[in-house]
Amino acid sequence: MSSNTKGTALITGASSGIGAVYADRLAHRGHDLILVARDTARMETLAARLRDETGRSIEILRADLTDRADVATVEARLTGDPAITLLVNNAGMSLNGTLLDNEPDQIERLIALNITAPTRLAGAAARAFVARKSGAIVNIASVLALAPEMFDGVYSGSKAHLLNLSQSLANQLAPDGVYVQAVLPGATRTEIWARSGKDVDAFPADMVMEVGDLVDAALVGFDRRETVTIPPLADEGQWTALNEQRLVMQPVLSRRDVAARYRELVAA
Results as ranks from 00 to 15, higher is better:
S57V: 14
S57T: 15
I58K: 13
I58R: 09
I58F: 13
E59W: 04
I60S: 12
L61N: 11
R62H: 10
R62K: 14
R62G: 12
A63V: 08
A63E: 05
D64Y: 06
D64I: 03
D64F: 03
L65Q: 08
L65Y: 04
L65A: 06
L65E: 01
T66C: 15
T66S: 15
T66F: 09
T66K: 04
T66P: 09
D67R: 13
D67Y: 11
D67G: 07
D67K: 11
D67A: 15
R68V: 12
A69K: 11
A69R: 13
D70E: 09
D70M: 05
V71A: 08
V71T: 12
V71Y: 01
V71F: 00
V71L: 01
A72E: 15
A72P: 03
T73N: 12
V74Y: 08
E75D: 11
E75P: 02
E75Y: 06
E75L: 07
E75S: 12
A76F: 07
A76Q: 13
A76W: 06
R77D: 02
R77W: 00
R77K: 13
L78K: 11
L78G: 04
T79E: 15
G80T: 03
G80Y: 06
P82T: 13
P82W: 06
P82A: 12
I84F: 01
T85I: 07
T85A: 14
L86D: 02
L86I: 03
L86F: 05
L86P: 01
L87N: 03
L87K: 03
L87M: 10
L87P: 01
V88W: 01
V88T: 01
N89E: 08
N89I: 07
N89Q: 05
N90K: 01
N90D: 09
A91C: 10
A91K: 01
A91T: 02
G92I: 03
G92D: 00
G92W: 00
G92E: 04
M93W: 01
M93I: 15
L95Y: 04
L95H: 06
L95K: 06
L95C: 11
N96D: 14
G97V: 02
T98D: 10
T98Y: 06
T98A: 08
L99P: 02
L99V: 13
L100Y: 10
L100Q: 11
D101I: 05
D101Y: 07
D101H: 12
D101K: 10
N102D: 03
N102W: 00
N102Y: 00
N102M: 04
N102K: 04
N102P: 04
E103S: 09
P104N: 06
P104G: 07
D105Q: 12
D105H: 11
D105L: 09
D105S: 14
Q106D: 14
I107R: 00
I107A: 08
E108G: 09
E108R: 14
E108N: 13
E108W: 10
E108T: 12
R109C: 09
R109K: 15
R109T: 14
R109Y: 07
R109F: 08
L110D: 02
I111L: 15
A112I: 06
A112H: 04
A112W: 01
L113Y: 05
L113P: 05
L113V: 14
N114C: 10
N114I: 08
N114K: 04
N114H: 05
N114M: 09
I115A: 12
